[in-house]
């Protein structure tokens, strides 16, 4: 999430995932320890034989400590399931974090391609190439009738999940978000939001993804998700315009307070941080805050999460110590920022 790419003020990131299984083995739930080890070894051999960047790293997740696993989770390079299950499992990491391959998650292979902003076409191109490369060395479980066979029937067929992460603070502030999403329910696109105590949306972040994986081509499935995005972007922009034109003082007040808290708090939770960073992010995008850049805000979203914070300090910290450390970190990175303009 470098903060570039088209529509990057609203679209945080796009990601594509493919579920794949090796034909010679049972699915993960029926794998013996020996099977899991053999799968990991087969994937590792395949990876070593492919023309990938020499910095591509094969990480034995079973050997990682708690903090390292959580760190990879916070970067969305591995899933909670891969982090927490027992047995042989691994992740293959691209040095630029443009892709990751999870081994022995719910499926033998979960290929992920990440892209900042909205660019599903180039994300799919890279994904398709990566999948072709792996397929040249491994035999996937596949039938012409049902496509790629997966452990859960919800993923069978293409095994494709496309998701786009959106930042929609103005739709939340204008209380239009539920209405907007109800309209999208009918078209088989899943939209999820996350919010904390007291109905405060967690960072106003929403994820849009396809629900079906069977019966339509990868391109069609991606198109269904991507054609929804411009409409959501449009709604969000209109809501932002409304706030600027009709509620300017309230908007300035909210953003100014958010920045004030992030700059002056002595202890702050990650939930609260997300909440205020969201407002600051909108303020920067609307030109209401000077001297803070969007990449900085995006970085703060990730670096203030528990494992990142502890990695940055180089030690394990209690929740309370983390809240103090988080407040310090935010102050360091936001000290140059200038509040909303008074006009």
């Amino acid at each position: 999430m470098r903060g570039d790419g088209p529509e990057s003020d609203i679209v945080m990131s796009s990601r594509i995932r493919l579920a794949r299984n090796l034909a010679e083995f049972p699915f993960v739930r029926k794998c013996s320890d020996k099977d899991r080890i053999a799968i990991a070894a087969a994937v590792r051999r395949a990876i070593d034989a492919l023309p990938l960047s020499s910095d591509t790293e094969y990480v034995d997740v079973a050997k990682l400590g708690d903090l390292d696993r959580q760190f990879l989770m916070e970067r969305q390079l591995i899933s909670h399931e891969l982090s927490e299950t027992e047995g042989a499992r691994a992740v293959i990491l691209d040095p630029q974090e443009r892709f990751s391959i999870m081994v022995n998650e719910e499926d033998h292979l979960r290929l992920q391609v990440m892209q900042s902003g909205l660019d599903l076409t180039s994300a799919w191109k890279r994904m398709n190439e990566l999948d072709d490369l792996l397929e040249s060395k491994l035999t996937y479980a596949f039938t012409k009738k049902l496509g790629y066979l997966t452990a859960c029937p919800t993923n069978v067929g293409t095994g494709l999940r496309v998701s786009v992460m959106l930042h929609l603070p103005a739709l939340v502030a204008t209380k239009q978000i539920d209405k907007v999403f109800r309209a999208f329910n009918k078209i088989n696109v899943a939209v999820r939001g996350l919010f904390g105590e007291g109905s405060q949306f967690m960072g106003d972040l929403y994820q849009v993804s396809n629900q079906m994986t069977l019966g339509k081509s990868e391109e069609t499935l991606m198109q269904r998700v991507s054609e929804v995005i411009p409409r959501l972007i449009d709604y969000e922009r209109k809501a932002r315009e409304f706030l600027i034109n009709e509620k300017r003082d309230d908007l300035n007040d909210g953003i100014s307070r958010a920045l004030g808290i992030l700059k002056t708090a002595k202890k702050i939770s990650s939930e609260e941080t997300m909440h205020y960073l969201s407002k600051v992010r909108m303020g920067v995008n609307l030109g209401l805050i000077d001297n803070v850049r969007i990449p900085t805000v995006n970085k703060l979203f990730i670096h203030t999460q528990p494992a990142h914070l502890q990695k940055l300090c180089g030690q394990k910290l209690s929740v309370s110590a983390r809240n103090t450390e988080r407040a310090n970190y935010l102050q360091q990175h936001l000290s140059d920022s200038v509040d909303p303009k008074a006009n």
Binding site: A23, F142, K144, K145, L149, P153, T158, L214, G215, S217
Partner: peptide, 24 residues
């Protein structure tokens, strides 16, 4: 179940070159 989830019962996407992975 597939009809319920996907509204479809057959695949129409990517096909791998290596077709030796059939469960049969």
């Amino acid at each position: 179940l597939l009809v319920n989830i996907h509204g479809a019962t057959s695949h129409s996407g990517k096909v791998p070159k290596n077709l030796n992975g059939s469960p049969e």
